[in-house]
Design a protein around this nucleic acid. Structure first.
Lengths: 160, 160
DNA sequence: GAAACACTGGTCATGTTGTCCACCGTACTC
DNA sequence: GAGTACGGTGGACAACATGACCAGTGTTTC
């Protein structure tokens, strides 16, 4: 087995096609990629089985929901309590969109949104209102220089 | 200004349904929500028009593509050059999944992935190999405490 | 009271889906 | 070199979903 190449060029082109026009249907994909419909179906099944494609959930824009402020919050936590307990606490706050433990002292980085700056204070209070959280320092996102994307990565991996 | 309450309970339940079972089809949604098909279609159109639903792109897992390391990189940039030029530089690197300018000195926070720690060095070298970037300090994500999600937010906003 | 709006429940032609099938190369194994 | 597994092809079929309509009804707003 050579280098485990997770996807090939056809996979990459299929993913790009679905990303560009998601409501397109399998048959139309097959037409545009000049392959048989069964091939597209088989590829999709395998990509999903391998976990490359996690799903086709609707992409929600928090800003359009009225949450116009995004912030990255770095938490200093009480090591004794364990990260997982803090993780569960964070999971209970809807405004916490994601959270990772990171190197540099066993702390946590979380992405949170809020309706405005005053609302961000409320969310931060919720976050630190838990005995396992010692301190939270946050930076507010001003502008999106690069919007979240994975297509370039897919094409780099697939040689599209 | 229109945007009083961005979504209602039906919108929220529709989004949750689509998030849970994306390949479900509009008709099936209508059946499960006990509303007419036209209603679901109209709601979806409006959610898309208002930008709440950005699309239905496939959710790609970078780890399954072989990019097993995630890092958050804070960039210190030369203010003179402007953020946008650095943003374009970052956009040219596939491993940069997103980037935001943030408060705290006009710097940039970027999320990058790499195949492994050695590969991360290569990516970081690419990032700092640009005259507008003065310094990069990175923290490596060890574990996902809260995986990226928007459903709780949707339900908080929609009162589902 | 009228207008605007959202939802219902129905129709229609059209296209897509899931699931079969036989067939054909290529690559790998013994 | 023969046998076999695998991935792709191209075709078939019934069942279903889609987009586009429509008239009718209730609710809210001016």
């Amino acid at each position: 087995m050579t280098s485990v190449s997770p996807i090939d060029s056809l996979d990459a082109r299929l993913i790009r096609l679905l990303a560009d026009e998601p409501r397109i249907g399998i048959l139309e994909c097959a037409r545009r990629l000049h392959v048989a419909r069964g091939t597209v179906q088989a590829r999709l099944d395998k990509l999903a089985a391998r976990g490359v494609i996690q799903g086709f959930g609707p992409d929600i824009d928090a800003a359009a929901l009225g949450y116009r402020v995004t912030a990255f919050v770095t938490l200093e936590i009480r090591q004794a309590g364990g990260h997982d307990r803090v993780g569960r606490h964070l999971a209970g706050i809807p405004e916490v969109l994601e959270a990772h433990t990171v190197t540099g002292g066993g702390d946590i980085v979380a992405r949170v949104v809020a309706r405005d700056n005053a609302d961000l204070q409320r969310v931060l209070d919720q976050i630190v209102g838990y005995e396992g959280v010692l301190r939270a320092s946050s930076v507010i996102a001003l502008a999106e220089q690069v919007r979240y994307r994975t297509l370039p990565l897919v094409e780099a991996a697939g040689g599209a």
